[in-house]
Design a protein around this nucleic acid. Structure first.
Lengths: 169, 169
DNA sequence: GCTAACGTTGAACATAAGTTCAATGTCAAG
DNA sequence: CTTGACATTGAACTTATGTTCAACGTTAGC
């Protein structure tokens, strides 16, 4: 199977498959005499595995260290450990999101709770002061956890035409 | 107040404050005759507001469009709308995280549920097949929502010395 | 033999939110 | 008058995950 067919079967783009090979996530693949890559059937499953892991919040780096060269020969202990830690990461994130959510809800309430005898400017000042006062120094979550959100989103990138123009830097 | 003091009072770095000015988040500031920036007391509150909004999941772009030039004169309707939508975003993310979490829990269970008469290789195949079979085409969340996780994390960047070496590209 | 579709490569670009650096200027204290 | 702390600027760099492009080679069908 050549890269185009693998792309169709896996739902990934050829460039993405080549990219995975380039960063060492996929081991170097066989070539035809013309230089074309040739993949075994199994490659579809490997790619499916990678995207599934990504959706679950694993980085490509993590996938690379977990993925064995032989799909039937996993490092059971390491894998279980990684899965368990990823669940803990998710739970930490859930806590942070819950915090943000109540924070915003309280803010909305606070804005609407303007005393009748207070003008908008004074209310703005009151709300701001309240807001900046509650500053619980934020829950700390490791930066690895950011990836949990990237999964499905970065994937369908915006076409160049409707990209926001960047600030001159 | 010069930039160093503002940095101390706000907890941000001077480079970050200059960066905010550069992207138009902070309006151009007064200068002393030597070219040094001079900030009013209010600047501390503005910066506090920006970081608070970031922690709540707003991008700098969003903050820029919401932040009025006069802190006492907010666009009430637009602000409320943005807050409400941000809460909805958070809830969508919570749903996605909950999904990922049960997905991982089920995977762990499935791995451990190896029938006694099945060898590891066959079990690996069974688990993989199960996993790739449940492919609910993922919840769709807008890419804006990624930012919700970035907030507190990207901030404390790793020192150059212990940075992971990048793959040659 | 031409054309379209596919393949190859390396390099550059994109995002978001900054940091880091080099070259240079200013200022207060000793 | 020198030293150290602070300020200025523009440019380049960072992370992670790819996409896009240009220049070129291969192959199948007509």
């Amino acid at each position: 199977m050549r890269i185009g067919e693998l792309a169709r079967l896996s739902g990934l783009t050829p460039s993405r498959i080549r990219f995975y090979e380039r960063i060492g996530l996929l081991k170097t693949v066989d070539r035809q005499s013309n230089g074309y890559r040739t993949y075994p059937q199994q490659a579809v499953m490997i790619l499916g595995l990678v995207t599934t892991a990504q959706r679950a919040g694993f980085t490509l780096d993590e996938v690379r260290t977990l993925l064995p060269s032989d799909l039937t020969h996993w490092d059971h202990a390491t894998l279980m450990d990684a899965l368990t830690r990823k669940i803990a990461d998710i739970e930490a994130l859930q806590a942070r999101l819950a915090q943000s959510r109540v924070h915003l809800l309280r803010l909305i309430e606070d804005i609407q709770a303007r005393p009748n005898d207070m003008d908008c400017a004074a209310n703005a000042h009151r709300v701001l002061t309240n807001m900046l006062a509650e500053h619980p120094k934020a829950l700390d979550v490791t930066s690895d956890d950011i990836r949990l959100l990237d999964a499905t989103d970065r994937r369908q990138s915006v076409s160049p035409a409707r990209r926001k123009k960047t600030v001159s830097r």
